[in-house]
Design a protein around this nucleic acid. Structure first.
Lengths: 242, 242
DNA sequence: GGAGGCGATGACAGCCCCGTGACGTCCACG
DNA sequence: CGTGGACGTCACGGGGCTGTCATCGCCTCC
């Protein structure tokens, strides 16, 4: 467990050799690189010298108390921890949860289940990015998260109304295309016939929130005599801007 | 699969030999006793003659329709069923879940994932005691222990009602996603059509218990004209707060 | 350069949507 | 049989959203 490798590394902290041996075997069989230590002091040293991807920590430990080990582990690094607790000991469990344990297994437990939980926690904690499953639209400093129904500009959330949001999304999804007001009314509003000025006004309000300079729009551009078009920011190097 | 044994027995129903062979191998490797049949008629006969602990059922079957097989299986005995469905075919999946399938996997799927689901379903249905372990959801000072059906905030247990709990768990499991009231009614309440205000009111009550300042919600955020969204506390460094 | 037309702007009224308080019912428990 | 909590529903009120219009400015074409 000294070198970075494709395999994820798990540190098992338990003073009972029977437990740690079985657990270690199962984890290795599941493809993990496993290290085992028998008390809290060693666990801290080991974790500091060679940080694992996850720690399986028995709360009942000789010497240093398990919760204390847990606290210090977390003080060193935000490593995911799966706790092993006695069935009855609810207080420890609560304290552990509060301190930030990622999961727990009560004794007696099936090694297979422990492996499942370890995998599950690693999956959860290693892929917070994959959570952003929804489609993301992007243009310059503009970011639209469809699933979240959220618009960011320069990292800050933008307060768009429902209509403004719909309009922006439609335009972003169809960049570099000019649309007449009729088309926009039909596509965004779902209306067949209506007052064109509705579109005009909403475009204005959208510009005020989306354009660097609303009076000289670079994103939502008017095509005189026709309608509007979304122009994505050109990908330019700095000198081209001069 | 004729005698009761320590190993749990799984019946795989799929007409594609490639699929059933791979699935069978993985399940056996995971310690299950596996039987494979290729069509629905045989599946029913087999299940009746020698009831398995769980059935893996492909919904796309020659001869008897998969859903029909499912219905008759359940008519015979309350055996847990994990469905295999085509990715696009949401209608079948919904019907299956509606009828009481315990889990589903969409094609293409990884055999390992299927094994995990099979194990998970069996654990759920066969070992209510082992449920004393739990997946933990977390956001800031909020901690939800699914197995314990327990919610902590700042270390103190929170008195949520059943609906409030369901709502919170659903939102926590789907953070950063905006849901309409219809969607929430369907997902959390299991209703098809109902009064939207039901959602509104429950959101309010949940906020009163979960939000630091219920009148300025930061967790359960309303998306005007759309619905609600759960925003996890941002993980920020100090300087970003300025 | 001037006239006509189109788009931008500011303002406003109606309305929709959300939050809130309150009430009736159902169910569990004493 | 009475009590209390949970749940769904409703009426009310306020604030924001939305569509419309009049006016002004600017683009286009002659």
């Amino acid at each position: 467990m000294t070198q970075a490798s494709a395999r994820q590394r798990v540190l098992v902290v338990d003073d009972d050799p029977t437990v740690s041996e079985v657990v270690g075997r199962y984890l290795e069989h599941a493809g993990f690189a496993v290290a085992v230590v028998a008390d809290g002091r060693l666990a801290l040293d080991r974790a500091l010298a060679d940080p694992p991807d996850l720690v399986v920590l028995d709360l009942m430990l000789p010497g240093l108390d398990g919760l204390e080990v847990f606290r210090r582990l977390r003080a060193q690094a935000p490593v995911p921890v799966v706790m092993l607790t006695a069935l009855g000991d609810e207080s420890d469990r609560l304290v552990g949860l509060e301190l930030g344990a990622d999961d727990y297994v009560t004794k007696p437990f099936s090694p297979r289940e422990l492996v499942l939980r370890v995998q599950s926690v690693l999956r959860r904690s290693s892929a917070p990015l994959a959570q952003a499953q929804g489609t993301i639209l992007r243009d310059g400093d503009l970011v639209v998260d469809i699933a979240a129904h959220l618009v960011l500009r320069g990292g800050k959330p933008l307060a768009l109304t429902a209509r403004e949001y719909d309009l922006l999304v439609f335009l972003l999804q169809n960049p570099r295309q000019a649309f007449s007001r009729e088309q926009l009314l039909k596509q965004v509003w779902g209306w067949e016939y209506a007052d064109h000025s509705t579109v005009t006004v909403h475009v204005r309000r959208l510009r005020e929130k989306v354009e660097p300079d609303p009076r000289d729009p670079t994103r939502v551009v008017t095509v005189f005599g026709v309608g509007y078009r979304y122009d994505p920011s050109p990908v330019v190097s700095a000198e081209e801007l001069v």
